[in-house]
Design a protein around this nucleic acid. Sequence first.
RNA 1: GGUUCCGUCGUCUAGUGGUCUAGGACGUCUGGUUCUCAUCCAGAAAAUCGCGGGUUCGACUCCCGCCGGAAUCACCA
Length: 481
Amino acid sequence: MFMKAITRFAPSPTGYIHIGNVRSAIYPYLVAHQTDGKMILRIEDTDRGRYVEGATELIEDTLKWLGLDWDEGPIIGGPNEPYFQSERTEIYLAWAKKLLESGRAYADPTPPEKIEEYRAKCNAKKVPFLYRNFRPENPPEWEPGMPIRFKAEPKEYSWHDEVMGDMHTGPEVLDDIILIKADGYPTYNFAHIVDDAEMNITHVMRGVEYLSSTPNYLALYEALGLVRPKLVSLPHILAPTGNKKLGKRDGAKSVTEYRDDGVLAEAMLNYLACLGWNDGTEQEIYTKDELIEKFSVERIQNSGARYDETKLLWMNGQWIRKIFAEQGARALYDRTVNFWPEEAADYPEEYRVKVLSIIYDRLKTLSDLHEMTGYFFKDPEIDMKMVMENKFLKKMSEAEIEELLKKVISKLAEVPEWNAEKLQEALNALLSETGKKPAELFSLIRIAISFAPFSPALNLTMETLGKETSLARLNAVARSI
RNA sequence: GGUUCCGUCGUCUAGUGGUCUAGGACGUCUGGUUCUCAUCCAGAAAAUCGCGGGUUCGACUCCCGCCGGAAUCACCA
């Protein structure tokens, strides 16, 4: 029996969520749900300079699309309100004052220029810059407008990271970090410690970039008398080329951009969860519930994983077929409403469902519908070059083709019932009556009714198009020879 | 530069001393399914397990060194 986990996703509203940083929302969600715990969404907006209008909504939108609902946070509220750090400044100040009183923090009147000077001096001498070596001797009484710094005690730290294993560092990594900035807002370093404690977070899951500052956090837990939460460092997702972590500079697309490009949320979640994690079996396709059931932080990979869009697209194809097979054409259709060509709007929904059900297994993304279904909604432009230059047809003369088309038209006109089965019978009969190879006969008909580079099986295509349209298109081609 | 982490097919990975002449998936290539495209099926190529030492009867697996890559060292998160 697991202890109920309380996890959090704590992004700063500086832009959209991309492939490179969304795992720090997915994994906390999975951990929370597999223990029947909860996930909190907290917005870390203490850097007013980097705040981006609308970013919070973007983040919420992304989480909702992926199905990663939060149990406490913006919109829905909760017992730990507010969930925006910018609205919690008095809380951080109160905690900082405790440290001030116990002598573990001090008000720092040193102007930034002076600090830069110290730093430059150290760099020149090639010695590490540690602010604690420049600590002001007689710090003044704190008053608003002054930063508050932690007073570090240099010592060794050992801890266990659920992904990276047993960690150990020496005293040289501890320093007097800023707790409260001159503008009154807390730093991330301090705010997340306070919030995690107040919100009873059990698992702190975040990118590995925070691993090196962990000793400073450990010192803070100690000074504040807090229990350390479980620490889970998530390796980076690497850009497709190079060895750098995937970031906006490498053109990392926002997660929701994939939605607009026709990727299913299920596929996205599946792919991302399995990038750098696996359950030890050979399973590749996981539903959200299966992920919740099978996920474990111990099996998260401890090296970075490269983002591979090809595999995402493959997985999307798998999900498209899975949804069709398990939930039916209608369920898949509901996901496609924004992806049809304009002309499709003039046709009844039933017709679009029918079209979808004969082409769905060719889709890599839902947006492929655009390219692939045009001729179902609009008579294609006749392009005789496509006929004459086709590799199976080029050995036939125009007269032969015209004659063959006429036979096809009269045969198909007689088909008693316009359905896939009867159409196939007619096509087979044409094959033996004309003595043509399937490649020749079928290519001609296929091109004549679609003028598309590819299409579903002929009988299904014609059945869907209907008798009138199919014959009209064949006639139009016959006339233009 | 200091500190810390990482290193198995092109990519994601399985692998915790012998069952590994290293398994799966994506991608690539070849064949099959009465046309195309895709699906699906069958098959192939693809990793001297970063390198060098050790420990051991035996190492991808343990130890040491080296090399390579990454992260971090802000009044950003």
